[in-house]
Design a protein around this nucleic acid. Sequence first.
DNA 1: GCGACAG
DNA 2: ATCTTGTCGC
Length: 231
Amino acid sequence: MEIHLVHPVHPRPDEFVGIQEMLRQQVRTNRPLTFSGLSTVAGVDIAYGEQEGMETGFCHIALFKLPSMEIIERAESQGPITVPYMPGFLTFRELPLILDAAQKLQNVPDLFMFDGNGILHPRRMGIATHASFFLGKPTIGIAKTYFKVGETEYLQPAPEKGSFTDIIVGGEPIGRAVRTSAGVKPVFVSPGNQIDLSSATDIALQLTGPDSRIPVPVREADIQTRNMRRR
DNA sequence: GCGACAG
DNA sequence: ATCTTGTCGC
């Protein structure tokens, strides 16, 4: 698929904040999307390892057909990781490999799901949101642990599957703690771009099976990503 | 110096 | 994220 080069893929660290603030003005999270209206969904993830003394990243994108949930395509990429991990700037560390893999896709997914946040971020620019500008498609962020924005803590949702609590910052709901599986830790769902919060929550829940609290597409990418490390 | 900290 | 063994439980 085609990638839109919104800005250089390897900006200097002193440009990080400026890029995030620039893109922030173009985020649109008011569009409803229905699960039944989706034909395909892609799960994206990256694992880390070492090759020849270099920190190396392994990216995998798994494309699912709906509603069969059949995997119709996979795309991978791997290479040295040059940017250190800094909370709030995960995108700059992982985006290069994600775009390398996405560019190889023969099919254009209707939606991408990421391991990490969307607008549940200090500058509303988590990896799912940031990547959407390069992909030109709706995205959703699924984080396994809470990334505190400002002083906002999250309230524990009820133990039943499907329950959730809004995470409100400055009067705006920018994410939800969602119980995707009964009695287990919640996941943190937030719109990346081109989709609203309730649609993102609904889709995340419908794509979560009984085996894991993580939506299937992201879980699949996570599993494949570690297999890559072994070879 | 101390605490916080998506992946 | 990754480093790491066994162990408790369904």
